[in-house]
């Protein structure tokens, strides 16, 4: 059984101060790295003799508009079937320079996951073979999952009487 501590220390030893923000929400090892290191980190975990964290569960994006300089996060979920160990790696990037290298060279599944992330957040995956929209129409000129495109307020803090037919 692989422990979070063990993997975290191994990554610290390999990448030094390029890994930071260690967390364990609900026992799920979560850490952050930079976009310069992300691919080599994915590769390191993939090729690791004992860990074999070589299954890409998910790639997704998150938008934090108030987080200046780190407006977007790309979140990777990885899984090792051998040890039943999961790890979550986050990479924060800024809106001004919204680039991150692609993981398609390592995982074929990253192709559509990255296209989806691009489609909704406009995150550009450098080196991606076919970075076009996947779920939305091609003519769309905005990235709908960004926080500035709010849906109508369903939590209704504006309880206008008219809304209730009064």
């Amino acid at each position: 059984m692989l422990s979070n501590q063990e993997v975290a220390e191994e990554l610290l030893g390999k990448f030094g101060d390029q890994v930071f923000d260690f967390e364990e929400p609900y026992g799920f090892l979560t850490l952050s790295t930079t976009r310069e290191e992300i691919i080599s980190m994915l590769e390191f975990l993939n090729q690791h003799k004992t860990y074999q964290i070589n299954f890409l569960t998910d790639i997704t994006g998150v938008h934090y508009p108030d987080n200046e300089g780190k407006e977007f996060a790309v979140v990777y979920h990885l899984h090792s079937f051998i040890h039943n160990f999961r790890i979550r790696i986050k990479v924060f990037i800024s809106e001004a320079d919204i680039h991150i290298p692609t993981a398609t060279g390592l995982y074929a599944s990253a192709n559509w996951m990255e296209r989806e992330t691009y489609d909704f957040y406009g995150i550009l995956f450098d080196g991606h073979p076919n970075l076009v929209r996947i779920l939305n129409i091609e003519e769309m000129d905005y990235f709908p999952m960004r926080k500035e495109y709010a849906l109508e307020d369903a939590t209704r803090e504006d309880k206008i009487d008219a809304l209730f037919g009064r």
Partner: peptide, 12 residues
């Protein structure tokens, strides 16, 4: 596509 992830951000 029905944008469930977006809709979910506004739902209890």
């Amino acid at each position: 596509h029905r944008a469930f992830e977006k809709i979910a951000e506004r739902r209890p």
